[in-house]
Design a protein around this nucleic acid. Structure first.
Lengths: 79, 79
DNA sequence: AATATTTTCCCTTTATAGCAGTAATATATA
DNA sequence: TATATATTACTGCTATAAAGGGAAAATATT
């Protein structure tokens, strides 16, 4: 149940486990090395696509949760 | 288990349920009306803090998931 | 220890997110 | 139907994210 606020340390942990340097991860994700550094450092003003590009390489997923999601599935499914 | 890709329609659904206009939601979240419009339209290059400001008002949470998360909790907890 | 590698933090440039206005279209309400 | 409200979609402007280069600081390796 990790929240998005801790995404920086999660990214770093996964990157280390994958045996990648920041530069390598950046290249794989198609972003600059600064982006990886900034995200691990906890920068919140990164762009969503930049973040998801990095998460995708590390097999990390962002899941949307809310009390209304069940209702959302029901309503959206029937349209 | 909604993925981040569908965040636009999720935001719109929740906003409607909350009885808010895009402008009202934008004001509550402290962002411009364009940001709400763009996100609902599916724009991916929004900034993370802009998105989370909006999600926070609607009580929507982004959860971080991965196969290594259990291990992450264990390792991080003991440090 | 020395050396190599990586990370952190500068810098400058470029691209664009986000803003407020405005107007047109669409939707809802009378 | 008319009319109010909301959404969409432009504008021009400002702030800043991201890239890449480089160098110091921190880590890792020999």
């Amino acid at each position: 149940m990790n929240k998005i606020e801790s995404i920086g340390s999660v990214v770093r942990y996964h990157r280390k486990k994958a045996g990648l340097t920041q530069k390598q991860l950046a290249t794989l994700a198609g972003v600059g090395k600064t982006a990886v550094f900034d995200i691990e450092k906890g920068k919140k003003t990164v762009r969503l696509n930049t973040l998801t590009a990095i998460l995708s390489i590390l097999n990390i997923h962002l899941i949307v949760q809310s009390p209304l999601m069940d209702q959302y599935y029901h309503d959206e499914g029937s349209e």
